[in-house]
Amino acid sequence: MSTTTITPTSGTPASGTPTSGTPTAGARRTTYPPIPFGRILGVELRKMFDTRSGFWLLMSIGILAVLASAAVVLFAPDEEIAYGSFAGAIGIPMSILLPVIAVLSVTGEWSQRSGLTTFTLVPSRGRVIAAKAVAAVGVGVAGMAVALAVGALGNVVGSQLAGVPTQWDATAANLGFIVLASVLGQLMGFMLGVLVRNSPGAIVGYFVYAFIVPTLSGVLASTQDWYRDVQQWVDFQYNQTSLYDTVGLSGDEAAQLAVTAGLWLVLPMLVGLWLVSRSEVK
């Protein structure tokens, strides 16, 4: 290795060697193995829940799930004390709040400026962002698994409490589509995160995207015949939320889901990923 001596402004060259003869940290030549993707994934998963906001989002899901399950037992007519109601009591708050965790996982690096550390410890931004996407999807799948499992427990206990026969009203196919819907919701949160990279902005964006746009679309569909005919070809939320109740997609429905997801999810996500690769972490 060539040594560049510091050029002094006057005279003699700098003596750049330490005087001690002991082995030094500077002379150490250990090669470290690269950071495996699994480790980045584990860290990103942990980071989703170790902040105050992450903790309270989880807590509020738990609290809402308990309240909603109790409400089903107390207020639902007997014929609706069934698996779907209990799974939904936990699944619906999750499907609304878990995407916020996906949003914050990305935006926090910019809004909270923790990216300065994250992207110096792992200079490859693509690996970090990929880990965040995988973690967001994983949380969506795990969340729904928990909702379905706890819902089953709630159904057994709840039907006993209400003194009605235990009803199982969901099929395996239905459960699959519920998980798919949840994954799409998580990807939507992730997409808004990479696109906006600002926590308040992306969360507002999420609620506009997930609630205001579908409401407007519904109003438009109920008043305008021409729109009702095309709604399913332009309204991603409509197709995504329909998945929670479906047991099978027709060819048309699958095409509508793919087209609207391409327009509302994939396209903005590509723009967002491009922006993330370029934006400066201040």
Binding site: T30, T31, Y32, P33, P34, I35, K47, D50, T51, R52, S53, G54, G108, Q112, R113, S114, G115, L116, T117, T120, L121, V122, P123
Partner: peptide
């Protein structure tokens, strides 16, 4: 391959997630 093991970096002490 694992920058944190070779280079310690502190660019801005305030750039941390306030909620951690």
């Amino acid at each position: 391959p694992n920058p944190g093991r070779e280079v310690g970096v502190l660019l801005d002490a305030s750039a941390q997630h306030a909620g951690r």
